[in-house]
Computed example of a mutant assay.
Amino acid sequence: MKGLTKEGPPCLEVLRHYECYCYQAAYYLLGNERDALAAAQAALTELAGGIPLGVLPEPERLLHIRRCVTHHSLHIRKLAVPAV
């Protein structure tokens, strides 16, 4: 995985720090535990393979994480809504 050993803290340590944040954001958007867990896991998996979060300044890091969680949450919500 690309993001694991770049300069700054290892990506997995950074991801562990934001794991709860990802779940809380997903739960806020989705309103149930099962979907929030799936969205948070998908977002964390994507973040682990993407740009190294440890080198981003804190505001940019939070924005990047929030966008990723929102993307996956909306994708899961779209899958849960039956087609009309």
Score class of each variant (00 low, 15 high):
residue 13 E to V: 03
residue 74 L to A: 07
residue 35 D to I: 07
residue 19 E to Y: 07
residue 16 R to C: 09
residue 77 R to F: 09
residue 20 C to Q: 13
residue 26 A to H: 03
residue 37 L to W: 03
residue 81 V to Q: 10
residue 15 L to A: 03
residue 79 L to Q: 14
residue 32 N to L: 01
residue 26 A to F: 06
residue 46 E to R: 14
residue 53 L to M: 08
residue 10 P to R: 12
residue 60 E to A: 08
residue 68 C to M: 12
residue 71 H to T: 15
residue 81 V to P: 00
residue 81 V to E: 11
residue 66 R to E: 11
residue 28 Y to W: 04
residue 13 E to S: 06
residue 28 Y to L: 07
residue 22 C to A: 15
residue 44 L to W: 06
residue 18 Y to G: 02
residue 18 Y to S: 05
residue 54 G to D: 04
residue 32 N to E: 12
residue 74 L to E: 15
residue 67 R to H: 12
residue 7 E to Q: 08
residue 22 C to N: 00
residue 75 H to E: 14
residue 80 A to L: 09
residue 75 H to K: 13
residue 82 P to F: 08
residue 10 P to F: 04
residue 45 T to N: 14
residue 21 Y to V: 06
residue 5 T to F: 06
residue 34 R to A: 15
residue 19 E to A: 12
residue 39 A to W: 05
residue 75 H to W: 10
residue 23 Y to F: 15
residue 6 K to M: 10
residue 41 Q to I: 07
residue 12 L to C: 03
residue 18 Y to V: 05
residue 12 L to G: 00
residue 27 Y to Q: 02
residue 13 E to N: 08
residue 19 E to Q: 13
residue 13 E to M: 03
residue 61 R to S: 05
residue 64 H to F: 12
residue 64 H to A: 06
residue 76 I to C: 09
residue 11 C to G: 12
residue 13 E to P: 00
residue 11 C to E: 08
residue 27 Y to K: 02
residue 33 E to D: 14
residue 46 E to S: 15
residue 47 L to C: 06
residue 20 C to S: 13
residue 41 Q to S: 14
residue 52 P to C: 14
residue 4 L to R: 09
residue 35 D to F: 12
residue 28 Y to Q: 09
residue 34 R to M: 05
residue 82 P to V: 12
residue 83 A to E: 09
residue 8 G to P: 01
residue 23 Y to S: 01
residue 36 A to H: 02
residue 48 A to N: 12
residue 27 Y to L: 07
residue 29 L to W: 03
residue 69 V to K: 03
residue 11 C to M: 05
residue 36 A to Q: 02
residue 71 H to V: 13
residue 28 Y to A: 10
residue 12 L to V: 10
residue 78 K to N: 01
residue 7 E to I: 08
residue 62 L to M: 09
residue 65 I to E: 01
residue 62 L to R: 11
residue 67 R to C: 08
residue 58 E to P: 05
residue 84 V to N: 11
residue 26 A to W: 03
residue 29 L to S: 07
residue 83 A to F: 06
residue 51 I to N: 02
residue 45 T to L: 15
residue 69 V to A: 08
residue 60 E to V: 04
residue 46 E to V: 13
residue 44 L to N: 07
residue 9 P to S: 05
residue 34 R to I: 08
residue 84 V to W: 11
residue 50 G to T: 14
residue 77 R to K: 15
residue 47 L to V: 09
residue 79 L to I: 06
residue 14 V to D: 00
residue 41 Q to K: 11
